[in-house]
Design a protein around this nucleic acid. Structure first.
Lengths: 200, 200
DNA sequence: CTCCTTACACTTTTTGAGGATCTGTCCGGA
DNA sequence: TCCGGACAGATCCTCAAAAAGTGTAAGGAG
C-alpha cells in the first residue's frame, strides 16, 4: 500500500519536473512561474507547493536530476569501452559535447555561464560548481580501476586536461563534435602515454 | 613640422587612453564619462571628441592597445627562449596567467566573460573574439619558424591545446600560476612529442 | 487522505512620468 | 588648435503606483 503511494508521488514529481524543464528551456528560469508548472502538469498550484515547498526547491531538484542523468550517461560511455581507454575518452567526450549542444540546462551547468536572465545558475553554485570536481574525481577513480597500468600522475594529468578541454570546446566550438572528440582522444593518449591507434 | 604635429597628437591620444584606462579599471566602462576623461587628462571635452569622435571609438582603441601590448608581451617570452620550446611555453603561459590576474581588462578580453555592468566586452566581439584566433595563429607561425623540426600537425594540436588550457586556467584556477605553467609545459611537450626535461 | 478552489498577507516586478545626466555637434573667442 | 558655452536628442535615474507572484491557510469534493 505504501509502495503505491510512493509510486504515485514520484510519478507526480517527475511530471512536475518535466513541466518545469519544458518551461525553463524555453523561457529561462526567471520567467518560470509556479502557476505555469501547475497548468502544464495539469494539477493545481497548491499541489506543486505541497510537493516541493518552494520554487527554489524545484530549481534544486531540476539541476540535480539533470546532473545525475548526465553523469550516468558519461559512465555508460566508459562502461562501453572498458578495455580501450582511447575509445572510452572519445565516446565520453562526444557524448558530453552532444549533450551540451542540445540540452541547454546541462550546458549552463557545465559552463556556469553567468549572465543571461537565468539565475538558475545560482542554485548551481551549491550543486554544480562542484560538478566539474565530481566529474574529475569520478573519471579518475574510474580510470584507476579500469586501467591500473597507467601511471597515476599521468592519469590525473590526463583526466584534468580532458575535462578542461571538453568544457573549452563547449564554450568555443571549432570543429564538429565528432572530430573534436577524436582530436581530444588523441591528445589524451599522448599525455597518458598510451598507444595511439591512429598514430600517423 | 608634420613630424611634430603627429608626435603631439599621439602623445595626446596616449594621455587620453591612460585617463580612460584609469577610470575604467576603477569604475568599469559603463560608468566612464567623456567629461571624466577630459578632466583627468587635463583637456576639454571637445578635444576628446575631436580626437576620437565617439565614446565607442575610445573603447575600441583601449581594447586594441591592451591586446597589442599583451601579444607583444607573449612574443617577448618566446623570444627569450627561442632555443627551448618547453621553456618558451612555460614562460608564455606564466606571463599570460599573471597578466590576466592583475590586468582586469586583459582578463575580460581573454575570457569574454559576459555579464558584469561592463559592456566594454561588446567592442571585443569586433576585435577580441578573434583574439584567441590571432594568438593561436601567431603562436603557430612563431613555432613553425623557431622550431621547424616539430611535425606541423603535432605543433598545431599543441598550440591550440595550450591556448585553450591557459584560458581554462584563467577562468578556473586551481594551482598557483607558476605550477600551472609548469604543468602545461609538460603536457605540451608530450603532445608535440618533445623531450621533456622534467620527465620523471 | 488527496487534491481542488478560494482567499489573503507579503514580497518582488513592471510600469510610467519627470527630471537629471550624457552624448555628439556647432560656434565664437583666445 | 584648443577652450568654453550652448543645445537638441538620447539615455539613464528615481520613485511611487499598479500588477503579478510567492507562500500559507481554510473549507469542500471525491
Amino acid at each position: 500500500m505504501t509502495r503505491y503511494r510512493e509510486s504515485v508521488r514520484s510519478l507526480l514529481r517527475e511530471r512536475l519536473l518535466d513541466a518545469a524543464y519544458e518551461r525553463v528551456t524555453v523561457d529561462g528560469w526567471s520567467r518560470l512561474r509556479m502557476s505555469h508548472i501547475a497548468a502544464t502538469a495539469g494539477v493545481s498550484r497548491q499541489t506543486v507547493y505541497s510537493e516541493f515547498g518552494t520554487r527554489d526547491a524545484i530549481g534544486q531538484a531540476l539541476v540535480m536530476r539533470e546532473v545525475d542523468r548526465f553523469l550516468l550517461g558519461v559512465q555508460e560511455q566508459f562502461d562501453a569501452h572498458r578495455s580501450d581507454p582511447h575509445a572510452a575518452v572519445e565516446a565520453a567526450v562526444l557524448f558530453t559535447l552532444r549533450t551540451a549542444a542540445d540540452n541547454p540546462l546541462v550546458k549552463s551547468i557545465l559552463t556556469s555561464s553567468r549572465g543571461g536572465d537565468d539565475d538558475l545558475i545560482a542554485h548551481l553554485t551549491t550543486r554544480s560548481e562542484p560538478l566539474l570536481d565530481t566529474a574529475t574525481t569520478m573519471l579518475d577513480a574510474y580510470g584507476a580501476d579500469a586501467w591500473p597500468e597507467i601511471d597515476p600522475e599521468s592519469r590525473a594529468l590526463a583526466v584534468e586536461t580532458v575535462v578542461r578541454l571538453t568544457v573549452s570546446h563547449i564554450v568555443q566550438p571549432t570543429l564538429p563534435p565528432d572530430l573534436t572528440a577524436t582530436r581530444l582522444a588523441r591528445i589524451l593518449s599522448r599525455i597518458a602515454l598510451l598507444p595511439d591507434p591512429h598514430q600517423s
